[in-house]
Design a protein around this nucleic acid. Structure first.
Lengths: 354, 354
DNA sequence: TCGATTTATGAAACCGTTTACATGCCCTGC
DNA sequence: GCAGGGCATGTAAACGGTTTCATAAATCGA
């Protein structure tokens, strides 16, 4: 394929001129520019981005490293990242399925020279020194970090606050025996949600250690499996808070199979506010998580870091979560006339966080 | 940051030697190699990938361009792409939200020089000449193309066959008045599923033009909205086939609201086999779509194209779909003892396609 | 002992751009 | 008539690697 040199030769100019034409420099006369463009079109010349970025030291690309995620959270997050990046003329170089620090290191090295910054989701503790090594050469933005890393902006989800909202809501409805279906061990979101569950119980005057906590892995199956444990417990819990909607759905299925009615016999609250939550029977009360906003905000912080002073103070952003009240928790919905027409019945209680 | 030259100078060797050390060339004596590595480590030297790929003309990166998708299909597809790519040491350079041919062209140009091949989802007709221009410089793999493009491998979903399976199943259960909730106009999957619906009706001896087809956009809301039209129709349909699971869920919600029981009063079949489908009440009969496999297969074809002869025959792969029978269609499930324990009750009828 | 072969290394060209600087030209004002 | 200032363009050095080819040293066989 044609290179800049061939275009230059064909048009009878130097490569500098061709380069200037393609970067819309005003330093070229209109006639020359046109001649160059004609020849470029004839030769079907496309500039080589790798060469360009080697020369300019800027890639218009952001590296993104995610652990092995799935479901709506992943797709919403990616949409947010990609949308916001695209809006500013950036692309995303992706590397998923990385959890341990070696993977992160290897992937970062491969990305070096092709990206202007790295967005990293939920790095574990051991990865921190790797992050710092990356940070020596590139701006880094952390998503949902376990703890802040020096000189890295970060943006997180208000998991803890969201979980507290859910539990407070159940307590306010009069429930005194609550169960929690936990997420996978080692997952930050899962841990924060559990912590929120605990603390909200304490604050409500209940003993968190006597509450039932069942293991789960964020998938429907484990929500379903948790049902047995819940029904066997004495005194039997009257409300269950699941660490995500998928498990809540599994639980709804199992409760239905066991002949229990939700919310009459058991209140259920989920977390994530999946797009389907409002359309289940019963519709699922859940904590809304703005994964798309998380992605957008991360990109915005990154662009700010790329353009700004490298030694600027690091910024920690928290994306607020909100309680979306629907049928499954048993709260009295203000059933205005027209409820039937409301697509996604739910009342929102926002919690704005720092 | 340190470059290869600085490492060379520090170690007292030439850049060629350092380069050889970092590409594990056997042409370097162990002592020299060690000395180079020591100095590289001390200087915290990381090779620059852009420079490397400019020089070697290979990037170990695949471009991926997707239209604005969401939901599980997107995340599964991405997982498939990324997993398989990672397995072979490749990364993904992503550019979403592209539908029209200009976007595709612009994004391709930006990617040129950074990718070894382009994977393109559902290009519309006008994009075809753009695809051909890209194809002049890079291997291209099309996902779910409307029609094959010369010299491009492609991999698609058996949408048409899947839709026929669903309808045939409903016909076999004795239904004679079917409704279809369509997907968004212009969407290839949606169109193929509609075509399958039509043809299966014809083959079953029914007049497809008298069947009820309602508009939808693949989201829960439109499935819910379709309910009114379905219930008003005379003779009232006894079965509904929704072009995807999200709309089927919306429909289930609306039917429940209208006091109808599924499957007793209305049979429902979806498409996609969302992870939740087996956990709804009633569980949703659906057509399984292996989005992850789609992605994997696309990457495999791409690697084959990259390594192989550029003029090799193009390959068209179809990922089969399968009927997953659950409760919502009203079929008699072989209820073996232990059904209660079965996580995802469903019987599979595979349709293997060319 | 000596030419032939092997092995380790370096010099320099190259990948395809951008850009600082130099150059030549035309115009202007005194 | 000419210094000085724009303006359009070209020259050549980066950018940070890889790789071909040449070369020097070490090894070998007879």
């Amino acid at each position: 394929m044609a290179t800049i040199r061939e275009v230059a030769r064909a048009a009878g100019v130097s490569t500098a001129t061709v380069s200037r034409v393609f970067s819309n420099s005003p330093l070229v006369s209109p006639e020359t520019a046109q001649r160059v463009l004609d020849h470029a079109a004839r030769l079907d010349y496309w500039p080589n981005s790798a060469a360009r970025s080697l020369s300019t030291q800027c890639n218009h690309t952001l590296g993104v490293m995610l652990p092995d995620l799935h479901g709506e959270f992943y797709s919403d997050l990616m949409r947010g990242l990609d949308r916001e990046a695209g809006l500013h003329g950036y692309k995303i170089l992706l590397s998923s399925s990385h959890s341990n620090s070696e993977d992160v290191l290897a992937a970062s090295r491969v990305m070096l020279g092709r990206i202007d910054g790295l967005i990293l989701l939920a790095p574990d503790e051991e990865s921190i020194d790797t992050v710092e090594r990356v940070r020596r050469r590139l701006p880094v933005v952390l998503l949902n970090p376990r703890e802040p890393v020096a000189r890295c902006h970060s943006v997180g989800i208000a998991n803890y606050e969201g979980a507290r909202l859910a539990v407070q809501h159940l307590l306010a409805l009069g429930h005194r025996h609550l169960a929690f279906i936990a997420g996978p061990e080692g997952n930050v979101d899962a841990e924060e949600r559990l912590r929120g569950f605990h603390d909200a119980l304490s604050e409500g005057g209940l003993d968190p250690d006597r509450a039932l906590v069942l293991p789960g892995d964020f998938r429907e199956m484990t929500g379903m499996e948790a049902c047995t444990g819940i029904l066997e417990r004495r005194p039997r819990p009257t409300a269950v808070f699941a660490a995500n909607d998928s498990m809540a759905i599994g639980l709804l299925r199992a409760l239905h199979g066991a002949g229990l009615r939700v919310p009459r016999d058991m209140a259920v609250v989920g977390f994530d506010n999946n797009s389907m939550a409002g359309f289940l029977n019963p519709s699922l009360t859940s904590i809304n998580v703005d994964a798309c906003g998380l992605g957008r905000r991360a990109v915005q912080l990154m662009l700010q870091a790329i353009e700004g002073d490298d030694d600027a103070d690091s910024i920690q952003v928290v994306i607020p979560t909100a309680l979306k009240v629907r049928e499954s928790c048993g709260a009295q919905l203000e059933s205005s006339p027209g409820t039937k027409d409301r697509p996604d019945p739910g009342t929102t209680f926002e919690e704005s966080t720092s």
